[in-house]
Design a binder for these strands. Structure first.
Length: 265
DNA sequence: TGAGTATGTTCAG
DNA sequence: TGAACCTACTCAT
């Protein structure tokens, strides 16, 4: 589920497993083979994340990864790691841990200037304690595009995807169709605070969890930890957890937006 | 077995 | 705005 929370999660996992140790780096699929051979045998020095972009640092060389729609990492103890599949773009391995990367939109070797360039095109990331929410507010406050579209724009706020977009707007009881310039400051502040809280919670175990316990059904409570619960995301045609009205799915700028027209005025 | 779908980005027109 | 990219999974045939 590659929204900002998973990227932060992967940054932490790779930092804990690999930083400071000598690594075996390969590209079983071959599409990262040249770069992998340059990194093979070296030490990872740090990891960082901004929005949906992950950076694995090897001194001046940095692996920039964007998972896109399908990309994911599989992590295992090296003692129990299987042979990599033919689609494994990159395998990172030391004595203790093995991480396989599959299906990323981007996996490339860049330098620090390249990393700065990527980050400069992104808005503030609510998962960072020192993020400047003011920069996002200024852009939203000037825009006539609907807030549902603006929240997904990575150059305004980095890290929010379709799931968090739908859930954040539901939690705020706000209509996704309100133009950005008509969104009051206190609503924006609430959205930002919730985004920050939910992204940080989600990054701890790499899962999106947005529904308060008192809004879960008994069956879902029994499945807690296994079920993928949401208020509105992918719940089109089902009754809203709060008011009972049917959740809607509509197209907004090419992406499916889920919302409750009764709760979100 | 094949079609359809998905948490995203980029580029051509 | 639509297509392309990339992979895994579900569902219908």
């Amino acid at each position: 589920m590659p929204e900002g929370h998973s990227i932060r999660h992967y940054a932490t996992v790779h930092s804990n497993a690999f930083v400071g140790t000598e690594l075996e780096i390969t590209s079983p699929q071959g599409r990262f083979a040249e770069e992998a051979s340059k990194l093979n045998g070296r030490k990872m020095t740090e990891t960082s994340a901004h929005g949906k972009h992950l950076f694995l640092h090897f001194d001046e060389d940095i692996v920039h990864i964007h998972l896109g729609l399908y990309g994911f990492f599989t992590g295992r103890k090296s003692s129990s790691a299987k042979e990599p599949g033919k689609n494994t773009r990159m395998r990172i391995r030391n004595e203790m841990f093995t991480s396989d990367l599959t299906g990323p939109t981007r996996c490339e070797l860049i330098d620090n200037a390249g990393r700065q360039d990527k980050i400069s095109k992104l808005g503030p990331d609510p998962i960072h304690n020192d993020a400047q929410s003011e920069n996002a507010w200024v852009k939203i406050h000037k825009s006539s595009k609907p807030i549902g579209q603006l929240l997904m724009d990575q150059s305004i706020i980095a890290g929010i995807g379709n799931v968090y977009r739908a859930e954040l707007l539901f939690i705020s009881s706000y209509s996704p169709y309100t133009p950005g310039k008509e969104v009051p400051r206190h609503v924006f502040d609430g959205l930002w605070a919730d985004a920050s809280r939910l992204l940080i919670t989600g990054s701890k175990d790499g899962k999106i969890r947005t529904v308060a316990d008192n809004h879960l059904t008994d069956a879902e409570v029994r499945l807690h930890g296994h079920a993928h619960n949401s208020y509105v995301y992918k719940r089109a045609g089902n009754p809203c957890r709060v008011c009972g009205e049917l959740v809607r799915a509509v197209d907004m700028a090419g992406r499916t937006l889920y919302w409750c027209s009764s709760c979100q005025k």
